[in-house]
Structure formats: structure tokens, C-alpha cells
């Protein structure tokens, strides 16, 4: 079961150990940025190429999706949510595509994502309604619920973090076990389910819930 461990790839003198997942994240980042630079190079308003049309369809779909949840006036949050969607989609499906361990099976990665989501959720609430209203809304509708409301601030990102981590870890464990038992052919359809389908679904669920919580916070 040593595949479950997140090994330390190398150690920097001051900062300390850099884990496998961070390195894989760097690779994903590099690939995503490189791809976007290549794909975005020749954008045209008229007569777009097939690649541009596909790109626009994808980005447009994501924007429509977030617009449906958050509304047109919150377009400023869309780029971050699209980034997270792309990153999660890439990192969840990287295991069958490139052979890396998915970074999202490391609790640090999902926790980082969840902390970012928490900051974003609270920030959007404060920005929309002001600090005073944000502080007051913990005592709504009755002051008795205040402890629960405050707990919710932590529970929402924690659930995001644990859902993603649990799904990816479980998928990874099942896949590793299956590979040791039946190494030939059988893992292929199972991998499609656990890595591709579940990975994309979890990426979708993560950004969907983040957007939903933001919307809730902004009311």
C-alpha cells in the first residue's frame, strides 16, 4: 500500500519537503498554461476555426453555467471558478491519462482548494452586503443559531474538501487493488468509471457547490 503515501520528491533547504502532489500540480499548471497559450494564439472575431469554436463553446458553457447560479452581476468570480474546474478536471483524470498519482488524493490539495473556496465564499458575502451585514447574518433568524452558523463557515469547505478527497482516494484505492488482482483488460472500463467519470463529476460538484454557497452567502 505504499502507493497511497504521498512521497516527498525533494527537499529544499529552507522551505522543507515538496510532496509529489505539488510537483504534479506544477506539471498540470504548466500543461494548462501551455495549452491555453497555444489555443488562444490565433483568436478571430470572424471566421473562427474549429479549435476556437470548441474553446469558445467550452468557456461559454462554463460561463453560462456559473451565470445561472450566481447571476450576471457576479462575473468577477467566474475566472477563478473556471480555473478550479479546469484544474480539478485535469488532476482527477491525470491518473489514467498520464500515469501520475492524482494530486486530489492528497488531503493537502483538497484542503487548499477548500480553504480558497471558504475565503471566496466569505469574501463574496462581505463584498455584496458589507462587513456589518455579514457579521450580523450569523445571528439570523434568531441569535440561538449563531454557533451553528459560525460552524457552517468551516463545515461547508470541510465537506467540499472531504468529499473530493474521499472520492478520489477511494477511486484510487479501488483501481490499485483491481490492478493487482486482474492486471489485464478489466481495469479499463472500471478506470473509465472511477477516474474519468467520477473525476469529472467531482470537479463539477466542487465548483457547483462553491458557487451555490457563494450565492447563498450573497443573499
Amino acid at each position: 500500500m505504499e502507493e497511497l503515501n504521498c512521497e516527498t520528491v525533494f527537499t529544499l533547504p529552507v522551505i522543507g519537503g515538496i510532496s509529489e502532489s505539488v510537483v504534479v500540480t506544477w506539471i498540470i499548471m504548466a500543461v494548462l498554461v501551455l495549452l491555453s497559450v497555444i489555443l488562444v494564439r490565433n483568436l478571430r472575431v470572424e471566421n473562427p476555426g474549429k479549435v476556437q469554436l470548441a474553446l469558445e463553446a467550452a468557456i461559454g458553457w462554463a460561463q453560462d453555467f456559473f451565470e445561472g447560479i450566481l447571476g450576471k452581476e457576479n462575473r468577477r468570480y467566474f475566472p477563478y471558478l473556471i480555473t478550479v474546474l479546469l484544474f480539478l478536471g485535469a488532476s482527477n483524470t491525470i491518473a489514467p491519462l498520464c500515469g501520475f498519482k492524482p494530486p486530489t488524493k492528497d488531503l493537502n490539495v483538497t484542503a487548499a482548494l477548500a480553504v480558497m473556496s471558504m475565503c471566496l465564499i466569505e469574501y463574496s458575502g462581505i463584498r455584496k452586503n458589507g462587513l456589518k451585514h455579514w457579521a450580523k447574518h450569523f445571528a439570523q433568524p434568531v441569535p440561538v443559531v449563531a454557533p451553528i452558523m459560525i460552524l457552517e463557515v468551516v463545515i461547508r469547505p470541510l465537506s467540499l474538501c472531504m468529499r473530493l478527497f474521499g472520492n478520489m482516494l477511494a477511486g484510487f484505492v479501488v483501481m490499485e487493488l483491481l490492478k493487482t488482482v486482474v492486471p489485464v483488460l478489466v481495469p479499463i472500463p472500471v478506470s473509465f468509471y472511477f477516474d474519468i467519470f467520477d473525476g469529472l463529476l467531482q470537479a463539477y460538484v466542487f465548483v457547483f457547490l462553491t458557487a451555490l454557497f457563494m450565492n447563498e452567502e450573497m443573499e
Binding site: G17, S19, V22, M29, P103, D106, A112, L113
Partner: peptide, 11 residues
């Protein structure tokens, strides 16, 4: 551990 911070910076 500290990797959480690196991940956030990465993000």
C-alpha cells in the same frame, strides 16, 4: 503540512 500552503500558492 506546509504543502497545503504551496498548493494554495499554486492555485
Amino acid at each position: 503540512n506546509l504543502n497545503l500552503v504551496w498548493e494554495m500558492i499554486n492555485l
